[in-house]
């Protein structure tokens, strides 16, 4: 009878499963990546007390009208120091508008951090208890978003951004979003 193919079923199943494993191992998939739910959707509302004295609160208005880079950082976070020079170049050399939010950071510590490493932020706000972070779907610091002129999130990086991220995706997104 023609039930012989049934005996091939286990082997075929193995083939499929092993194919996925091989695909996963050879792709640069990061199993710990959790993705982002925000890309392609309007940026969450923002209302952060100013980090620098005498400035106004950082609000949605600070994000509108041109593409911006929103960066969550903290002085106690080592990878933030790592990516800081990249943010500096992005702001100074490429003229990008960078908005910084100090995550669970004392203002004095955050300001000292910026004084030491340079201040790339056009607007800088405070998120003392991580409430804004939850609104923005943050999992830790640093995280960086690119938001276009209409307020739609275009990119979301979890973890420090690299030169390559800037060249390959952030600059093109900034250009396309204006």
């Amino acid at each position: 009878m023609s039930t012989r193919w049934l005996y091939l079923l286990p082997l075929a199943t193995l083939g499929i499963v092993a194919g996925f494993f091989a695909w996963s191992l050879t792709s640069d998939r990061n199993p710990a990546s959790i993705g982002s739910a925000l890309v392609g959707r309007p940026a969450p509302t923002l209302n952060a007390a100013p980090l620098r004295e005498g400035e106004t609160a950082v609000t949605d208005a600070s994000l509108r009208g041109r593409p911006v880079v929103v960066n969550f950082f903290a002085s106690w976070c080592a990878p933030c120091q790592l990516e800081h020079p990249i943010l500096m170049r992005l702001a100074e050399r490429e003229g990008a508008t960078v908005v910084g939010i100090a995550y669970k950071n004392k203002p004095a510590d955050a300001l000292a951090f910026l004084k030491r490493l340079g201040d790339p932020y056009k607007h800088a706000g405070l998120d003392p208890d991580g409430k804004i972070a939850i609104d923005w779907g943050l999992s830790g610091v640093p995280e960086t978003y690119v938001i276009d002129a209409r307020g739609i999130v275009r990119l979301h990086f979890r973890g420090p951004i690299s030169e390559r991220d800037v060249k390959d995706s952030i600059l093109p997104a900034l250009k396309a979003g204006s």
Partner: peptide
């Protein structure tokens, strides 16, 4: 697994 299941597909019928 493939060896075992291949042999199975071949011989078990």
């Amino acid at each position: 697994t493939g060896g075992g299941l291949g042999l199975y597909a071949w011989r078990a019928p």
